[in-house]
Amino acid sequence: MNQPQNPAHQHPRPEFPAQDQPHPGWTGPMDPPPDHGEQSYRGSGRLDGRKAVITGGDSGIGRAVALAFAREGADVLFTHLDEEKEEARETARWVEDAGRRAVPVSCDIREEANCRSLVERAVAEFGRIDVLVNNAAYQMSQPEGIEAISTEQFDRVLRTNLYGMFWLSKFALPHIPEGGSIINSTSVQAYKPSPHLLDYAMTKGAIVTFTHGLAQMLADRGVRVNAVAPGPVWTPLIPATLPDTVEFGKQAPLGRPAQPAEMAPAYVFLASPEASFITAEIVNATGGTPLP
């Protein structure tokens, strides 16, 4: 039996070793290694027979969600970038170890045609899409302020975080049956933006608004739309995009960053029949940071 633990000490706490990676970052070199629930997540058939699409499923929160969905009985198609093929193979291995189908797809969701093709691939593989998880995101810290945010960076952040989510939701909707759901990944940054992540935080605020609006639009179709707002989470994006990892997550009231495995149960719940009366909701998983 799992014994109750103090959540502040359940996973590693800063200070962490200084570490830096080029974008998009990889799981292997991270110290401490992220926990995606490989040894801890236990499924109970809550998503048995479901077909899920997850963007950014190669590592971090996306990998943890893919693993959890598979152990709950879902087949999973997930996206990754070309340079993340090794990471994607690892995610696929965990999905298949759970006895479910894994379909890794290299896809840059910044392009509309790629998003359309991704949905077509999912429908060809599965016949339908029961759960769409819009999780892929891009950020890059700019401590020198708005003057340092180039148009190229600004465009990449918006096209990854907003355009891709919009296109995939639009194209997937005709293939989402009644009882299906869309789950978006927003962030504590939507409510408490860090100045050095201005453009990223702006998109996360927009995701909250998109979630609220789309949920109302789709309620009469029987499709629920919700989002998860993580606080600091220990993923490859952190050493790849932030200048200082030593004290990452220390600002949370629990005094540490979350592990990806701690985010996955929120996505499982929102995708499951237990959440049948929950739509237009943001599940805040911030480690104690109060949000509106």
Rank of each mutant, 00 (worst) to 15 (best):
I146A: 15
N6V: 12
A240W: 10
P232Q: 01
A136E: 03
A70T: 04
T286Y: 13
S40D: 13
S150V: 02
S59Q: 13
H11N: 13
A258D: 06
L173I: 02
A252C: 10
Q259C: 13
N135S: 13
P290M: 11
S185H: 00
V103E: 08
R159N: 13
D82C: 00
A229T: 07
M140W: 09
V76M: 05
I176H: 00
I61R: 04
V157H: 00
G43M: 00
A74T: 09
E274D: 15
G28W: 01
L162Y: 00
G180T: 08
G287P: 09
G179H: 09
G287I: 02
Q10L: 15
P290F: 08
G213P: 00
R89H: 08
I149P: 01
S141W: 07
A92P: 06
V246R: 14
D244G: 07
H23A: 07
A201W: 06
R42Q: 14
A98P: 07
A102D: 05
R128I: 05
F269P: 03
Q3I: 13
S40F: 10
E144L: 06
I176F: 04
T55P: 02
G43K: 02
R128S: 12
T289Y: 09
C107Y: 09
A240I: 06
Q5M: 15
R50M: 11
L132T: 07
R221D: 07
R256K: 05
D220P: 07
I278K: 00
Q251V: 10
A52K: 01
R221E: 12
A227H: 11
R110E: 12
F166R: 04
F166E: 01
M140S: 10
E87N: 15
R156D: 09
M140F: 12
A136K: 02
V246G: 00
G60I: 00
P17W: 11
T55W: 05
S272W: 02
